Amino acid sequence: TGYYDVLGVKPDASDNELKKAYRKMALKFHPDKNPDGAEQFKQISQAYEVLSDEKKRQIYDQ
């Protein structure tokens, strides 16, 4: 599964769309709200870390 799929956004998503999707998913799977969501929360955080950084995103998109 790709990072875009993890966040539920298209590859041409804007920074604002990425942030909005990340916040929505992070709230849904945060371990405090969803004890079984810890692994998914890590994936969401990693996806956002890469896609929100312009240089990392360019490398990922290659």
Rank of each mutant, 00 (worst) to 15 (best):
T1A: 11
T1W: 15
T1L: 15
T1H: 13
T1Y: 15
T1K: 13
G2E: 09
G2A: 11
G2W: 15
G2P: 08
G2R: 13
G2K: 12
G2T: 15
Y3H: 03
Y3D: 00
Y3R: 01
Y3Q: 02
Y4V: 02
Y4C: 05
Y4D: 04
Y4Q: 01
D5H: 10
D5V: 09
D5S: 10
D5P: 02
D5R: 11
D5G: 10
D5N: 09
V6K: 03
V6P: 00
V6H: 04
V6F: 04
V6G: 01
V6T: 06
V6M: 10
V6Q: 04
L7D: 01
L7H: 01
L7M: 08
L7P: 01
L7Q: 02
L7C: 05
L7Y: 00
G8N: 05
G8M: 06
G8R: 05
G8E: 06
G8T: 01
V9H: 00
V9D: 01
V9E: 00
V9S: 02
V9C: 09
V9I: 09
V9L: 08
V9F: 01
V9K: 00
V9W: 02
K10E: 07
K10V: 04
K10F: 07
K10C: 15
K10M: 09
K10L: 11
K10W: 06
K10S: 12
P11I: 08
P11L: 06
P11N: 08
P11S: 09
P11M: 09
D12M: 04
D12L: 05
D12S: 10
D12H: 08
A13P: 00
A13C: 13
A13E: 01
A13S: 04
A13N: 01
A13Q: 01
A13V: 12
A13T: 04
S14C: 09
S14K: 06
S14E: 05
S14P: 05
S14V: 01
S14M: 03
S14L: 04
S14A: 03
D15M: 15
D15V: 14
D15K: 14
D15Q: 15
D15F: 15
D15N: 14
N16W: 15
N16V: 12
N16S: 13
N16T: 13
N16G: 12
N16Y: 14
E17I: 06
E17R: 01
E17T: 06
E17H: 03
E17V: 05
E17S: 04
E17D: 11
E17K: 03
E17L: 03
L18F: 00
L18C: 05
L18A: 01
L18D: 00
L18M: 04
L18P: 02
L18S: 02
L18Y: 01
K19W: 14
K19P: 00
K19S: 09
K19V: 07
K19F: 13
K19L: 15
K19Q: 13
K19T: 11
K19A: 12
K19N: 07
K20Y: 09
K20C: 14
K20T: 11
K20V: 14
K20Q: 14
K20D: 15
A21C: 07
A21Y: 03
A21S: 01
A21R: 01
A21H: 03
A21P: 00
A21F: 01
Y22F: 14
Y22G: 00
Y22H: 01
Y22Q: 00
Y22N: 01
Y22T: 00
R23C: 15
R23K: 12
R23V: 12
R23W: 13
R23D: 14
R23F: 12
R23P: 01
K24G: 07
M25L: 15
M25I: 06
M25F: 06
M25A: 09
M25D: 03
M25T: 02
A26E: 07
A26F: 15
A26L: 15
A26Y: 15
A26Q: 09
L27K: 12
L27A: 14
L27Q: 12
L27G: 07
L27T: 08
L27S: 12
L27I: 13
K28P: 04
K28V: 08
K28S: 06
K28G: 05
K28H: 05
K28E: 10
K28I: 11
F29A: 03
F29V: 04
F29N: 03
F29M: 04
F29C: 08
H30N: 09
H30T: 04
H30W: 06
H30S: 11
H30F: 06
P31N: 10
P31E: 04
P31Y: 06
P31C: 11
P31L: 07
P31S: 07
P31W: 05
D32W: 09
D32C: 14
D32T: 10
K33W: 11
K33S: 12
K33L: 14
K33N: 13
N34K: 04
N34P: 02
N34Y: 08
N34G: 06
P35I: 06
P35L: 06
P35K: 08
P35C: 09
P35V: 07
P35E: 05
P35A: 07
P35H: 05
D36K: 12
D36M: 09
D36L: 11
D36I: 07
D36H: 11
D36C: 11
D36W: 10
G37T: 11
G37V: 06
G37P: 02
G37Q: 07
G37Y: 15
G37C: 14
G37H: 14
G37K: 09
G37A: 12
A38N: 07
A38L: 11
A38Y: 11
A38P: 04
E39M: 08
E39R: 07
E39G: 05
E39C: 10
Q40S: 07
Q40F: 14
Q40H: 12
Q40K: 14
F41R: 03
F41A: 01
F41S: 02
F41W: 15
F41T: 01
F41H: 02
K42R: 13
K42E: 08
K42A: 11
K42V: 07
K42S: 11
Q43F: 12
Q43W: 12
Q43S: 08
Q43A: 13
Q43K: 14
Q43D: 03
I44P: 01
I44K: 00
I44D: 01
I44E: 01
I44C: 05
I44V: 08
S45Q: 15
S45P: 03
S45A: 12
S45L: 15
S45I: 14
S45D: 06
Q46L: 14
Q46M: 13
Q46E: 13
Q46T: 10
Q46H: 12
Q46V: 13
Q46W: 12
A47Y: 02
A47L: 00
A47G: 02
A47F: 04
Y48T: 01
Y48M: 04
Y48F: 10
Y48H: 02
Y48C: 05
E49M: 08
E49Y: 13
E49N: 09
E49P: 02
E49S: 11
E49L: 10
V50N: 04
V50D: 03
V50P: 01
V50R: 04
V50E: 05
V50F: 09
V50K: 05
V50M: 06
V50H: 06
L51N: 03
L51F: 02
L51R: 01
L51P: 02
L51W: 00
L51Y: 00
L51G: 02
L51H: 00
L51S: 00
L51I: 04
S52K: 08
S52V: 08
S52H: 06
S52W: 06
S52E: 04
S52C: 12
D53V: 08
D53G: 06
D53W: 05
D53Q: 07
D53R: 08
E54F: 14
E54R: 15
E54G: 12
E54K: 15
E54H: 15
E54I: 14
E54W: 15
E54M: 13
E54P: 15
K55G: 08
K55C: 13
K55D: 05
K55E: 09
K55A: 11
K55R: 14
K56F: 07
K56D: 04
K56A: 10
K56W: 06
K56T: 11
R57C: 05
R57A: 05
R57F: 03
R57E: 02
R57I: 03
R57T: 02
Q58N: 09
Q58L: 12
Q58H: 10
Q58E: 09
Q58T: 09
Q58F: 11
Q58S: 11
Q58P: 06
Q58C: 12
Q58W: 12
Q58I: 10
I59H: 11
I59E: 14
I59S: 11
I59K: 11
I59R: 10
I59V: 13
I59Q: 13
Y60T: 02
Y60R: 02
Y60Q: 05
Y60G: 03
Y60S: 03
Y60F: 03
Y60M: 03
Y60K: 03
Y60L: 02
D61M: 06
D61Q: 04
D61Y: 06
D61N: 06
D61G: 05
D61L: 06
Q62R: 12
Q62I: 09
Q62Y: 07
Q62F: 08
Q62T: 09
Q62K: 11
